[in-house]
């Protein structure tokens, strides 16, 4: 009998304590943001899809030497690149760098292995498309467009 009333008392008290907590939270400011209108600052270390970065000394050019290290090391086999020999140019010239972003796991292996540090992560996080092919990015075109 004593337990019976004790349970009513403690139980009722715990319910009221719980309700007081939610009441307090009710009057505190919201913590979420209305996403497309407000955006939170992105961390500078965020990993978006990879991009070719431009050379600091010669800003019109990217640094890729078409060594194919990234293509070989990529665990997801999502890089497809090609270089060709051109008259009067030392080394290889990159003619194609396609990234299949549907498969990329953003592991960073390609960025790490690249001998001339030609790759970096972008800060793009909004990817929308109607088909898989929309996510096959042409990094070479991107870096050239960007000029």
């Amino acid at each position: 009998m004593k337990d019976y009333f004790a349970l009513i008392f403690t139980g009722g008290k715990s319910l009221i304590v719980g309700m007081m907590i939610t009441l307090r939270e009710l009057f505190r400011p919201v913590v979420t943001v209305q996403y497309p209108r407000e955006k939170l600052p992105l961390s500078p270390n965020y990993r978006g899809h990879t991009i070719l970065i431009r050379d600091e000394e010669k800003p019109e050019k990217h640094r890729c030497i078409s060594c194919k290290m990234c293509e070989r090391e990529c665990p997801s086999n999502c890089i497809d690149l090609a270089g060709e020999k051109r008259e009067g140019v030392k080394g290889m010239v990159l003619i194609k760098y396609r990234l299949d972003f549907t498969k990329c796991s953003l592991c960073g292996t390609c960025v790490e292995v690249c001998p001339p540090n030609a790759l970096d992560f972008s800060k793009v996080y909004q990817h929308v498309g109607f088909s898989r092919e929309d996510f096959h990015y042409d990094l070479l075109a991107m870096v050239e467009e960007d000029k």
Binding site: E25, S43, P44, N45, Y46, S105, L106, C107, G108
Partner: peptide
Amino acid sequence: YTFEDREKILDILEDVTGSRLTYC
């Protein structure tokens, strides 16, 4: 409420690892 706390961890980890969930 737990997500509010968890968000803080994810922000910290994002800053060092670059991702929020599937870290490599």
